[in-house]
Design a protein around this nucleic acid. Sequence first.
DNA 1: TTTCATTTTTGTAATGATTACACTTTTAAT
DNA 2: ATTAAAAGTGTAATCATTACAAAAATGAAA
Lengths: 136, 136
Amino acid sequence: MTTAIDILNSHNIRPSVQRIAILKYLLEHRIHPTVDDIYLALNPTMPTLSKTTVYNVLRNLVENGAVLALTIDEKNVRYDADTNSHAHFRCQCCGELYDIEQPTMALGNTTGFEIENVHVYYWGKCPKCVQIRNKE
Amino acid sequence: MTTAIDILNSHNIRPSVQRIAILKYLLEHRIHPTVDDIYLALNPTMPTLSKTTVYNVLRNLVENGAVLALTIDEKNVRYDADTNSHAHFRCQCCGELYDIEQPTMALGNTTGFEIENVHVYYWGKCPKCVQIRNKE
DNA sequence: TTTCATTTTTGTAATGATTACACTTTTAAT
DNA sequence: ATTAAAAGTGTAATCATTACAAAAATGAAA
């Protein structure tokens, strides 16, 4: 099992208390939290934590490829510690954000472009909301 | 050629002067503009136009499927009048946003999910920026 | 272990996109 | 022409994010 410290080290990010806490939270809560989610979750046990630090740390983690920033939610950026290839699904009923298997893709003509990164975002109804609708 | 009015009518949106102007601008300027881009472009010839109206009209267009909202840019939502299936590429050097051919995708296991919409976002270097880097 | 430079964190203030809201104007049907 | 509904407008509020300067922590050198 890879710990937060290992991940920080392997991305050349010095493992400060705050960085460890934030990455640890992301690793243990795969809910694609927003900055606010993270701040509110950690604040009780780290009262001195500043929201600016959460922003700073996350920018650092994203820039160094340790964490993904998801822009599927128009309001807030969401963060994901799972950097393996996978897609995301956002339910238009309940707003929930799910991990979903990455489709196998045959790229079209992308001549001249150097592609470094792909994000696939789905929108629709999640299983829970489909069921609720069918019961009505 | 489909006009702005045709598109509005076919999506059951009443064709007001402002709606026509905004959709026409989107149809004729395939640059994925932001709200501000659109407002600044139209303001000279429509001095009474309000930015709130631009927001309202775009929300209406998106909700009725006449226009796409792109969240590839973390700062602003960008709008696209091309609702045909295509992907988007954002250059990490110059920030430019390109249309790009939609990959042919074989969906993985999405049992239970009702998928209504897919967006594929690419990041990397655009041909211009690749060239510039190679010349250095 | 003291010193000092560098990095990191912190809190407050600013920014900037978006929305709320109340009022005015336009539209379309009678 | 009258009138009710829809659409547009301008200002003020909201809220995520960033800027910035001061404080704290870190780590290397003496």
